[in-house]
Amino acid sequence: MPYFEGSDGARLFYKDWGSGPAVVFSHGWPLSSDAWDVELKLLADNGFRAIAHDRRGHGRSEQTWAGNDMDTYAADLSALVDGLGLSEVVVVGHSTGGGEAVRYAVRHGAGKVRKVVTAGAVPPVMVQSDKNPDGTPLSAFDGIRDSVLGDRSQYWKDLAVPFYGFNRDGAAVSQGLIDDFWRQGMNAGLASAYDCVKAFSETDFTEDLKALDVPILIAHGDDDQIVPIHDSAAKTAELVKYGTLRVYPGASHGIHGEYQQQFDRDLLDFLRS
């Protein structure tokens, strides 16, 4: 299996499929690059080089004690791009990975990144504060941390239900998706999964979004129960210079089903434009 050295020498796993213009994917919490497999194959089949890594502490990557923060995540992504000698890349990020992609593009990607795509992404900032009164209260994230510490195996099973919108009336529940969410979650290290809650909820990307100087496709489901659209994509679209907001009616946080089919078509169109 291929590995690269992260920004501090951590041993991190990645996938590299196909050939052509490079598209680099960052996954959500608590998942791994496996969450992007459908998109990786789709792009590789359509003339792109599709690359995705397991964030430190997730999947097959080293479970580091330090560096479980957004600045290090972005630096790790930079190490991957530079290590592979990539240029003119498109970075794609879901949820936590959307924040990682935006921070990477602004802090490390000048002259290397030509486009950004986010889906269900956490920017500008999730946690409630005086500056962000519409955000999610800190107590909710404290509850997530308590669940991760208390019984993360059961928590991943429980979290998968709203993640994919399976708690909605008439939803076609996939036990396979729930099981796969659990599988990927259980491959995340405890310390890394715990620390990542602070990274995805408290990191403020407002200035990153204002500084972003390349086109960005901002994809989001309007029934996202994990990262509510009104406090994320809607605000992101107002902060960036060259943004396109694509709202998917009834879509959940997890990319699956009809939402995935629509998103994948939009992704290919955006890459080719």
Rank of each mutant, 00 (worst) to 15 (best):
residue 261 Q to D: 13
residue 136 T to K: 07
residue 230 H to W: 13
residue 117 V to C: 07
residue 102 V to L: 11
residue 38 V to W: 15
residue 121 A to N: 03
residue 121 A to E: 03
residue 21 P to I: 13
residue 181 F to P: 03
residue 61 S to Q: 05
residue 23 V to E: 05
residue 156 W to C: 09
residue 98 G to H: 01
residue 167 N to K: 07
residue 46 N to D: 12
residue 234 A to T: 10
residue 78 S to F: 00
residue 191 A to L: 10
residue 190 L to Y: 11
residue 102 V to S: 04
residue 201 S to G: 12
residue 30 P to T: 13
residue 12 L to W: 04
residue 16 D to Y: 11
residue 29 W to C: 07
residue 104 Y to K: 05
residue 12 L to P: 06
residue 246 R to N: 11
residue 129 S to P: 08
residue 127 V to D: 00
residue 235 K to E: 14
residue 163 F to I: 01
residue 5 E to H: 14
residue 186 M to V: 09
residue 198 K to W: 09
residue 129 S to M: 00
residue 38 V to Q: 15
residue 255 I to R: 04
residue 246 R to L: 14
residue 197 V to E: 05
residue 88 E to L: 00
residue 207 E to G: 03
residue 170 G to W: 13
residue 149 L to N: 10
residue 169 D to A: 15
residue 254 G to I: 08
residue 249 P to W: 12
residue 27 H to L: 10
residue 260 Q to P: 03
residue 270 F to H: 03
residue 251 A to D: 09
residue 43 L to I: 07
residue 60 R to M: 11
residue 256 H to M: 05
residue 115 K to L: 10
residue 90 V to A: 00
residue 72 T to W: 06
residue 157 K to M: 11
residue 31 L to P: 01
residue 173 V to K: 12
residue 97 G to V: 05
residue 144 I to G: 05
residue 58 H to C: 06
residue 45 D to A: 10
residue 219 A to N: 12
residue 26 S to T: 15
residue 70 M to F: 01
residue 187 N to S: 13
residue 50 A to P: 08
residue 266 D to K: 05
residue 206 T to D: 04
residue 272 R to P: 08
residue 138 L to A: 15
residue 13 F to E: 05
residue 67 G to E: 05
residue 122 V to T: 12
residue 168 R to I: 14
residue 30 P to S: 13
residue 204 D to Q: 11
residue 136 T to D: 01
residue 151 D to R: 07
residue 120 G to N: 01
residue 155 Y to W: 15
residue 32 S to K: 07
residue 223 D to A: 15
residue 93 G to V: 05
residue 204 D to L: 06
residue 184 Q to R: 10
residue 201 S to K: 04
residue 231 D to Y: 13
residue 219 A to G: 12
residue 181 F to K: 02
residue 237 A to P: 01
residue 268 L to I: 14
residue 116 V to Q: 04
residue 35 A to Y: 11
residue 30 P to R: 08
residue 133 P to I: 09
residue 167 N to M: 09
residue 193 A to S: 15
residue 239 L to I: 05
residue 94 H to P: 03
residue 257 G to L: 07
residue 112 K to D: 02
residue 241 K to A: 14
residue 98 G to L: 02
residue 138 L to R: 13
residue 42 L to C: 01
residue 37 D to S: 14
residue 208 D to N: 09
residue 9 G to S: 11
residue 63 Q to Y: 14
residue 262 Q to N: 05
residue 186 M to C: 09
residue 189 G to M: 02
residue 148 V to E: 02
residue 229 I to A: 11
residue 185 G to M: 01
residue 244 T to S: 10
residue 51 I to C: 00
residue 192 S to Y: 01
residue 14 Y to W: 00
residue 194 Y to Q: 06
residue 210 K to H: 09
residue 271 L to R: 04
residue 120 G to Y: 00
residue 199 A to S: 15
residue 158 D to N: 13
residue 220 H to Q: 11
residue 12 L to I: 11
residue 58 H to T: 10
residue 69 D to E: 14
residue 253 H to R: 01
residue 29 W to T: 14
residue 82 D to P: 03
residue 65 W to Q: 09
residue 35 A to E: 14
residue 164 Y to F: 15
residue 211 A to W: 04
residue 250 G to K: 07
residue 176 G to E: 13
residue 107 R to H: 10
residue 82 D to M: 03
residue 27 H to K: 06
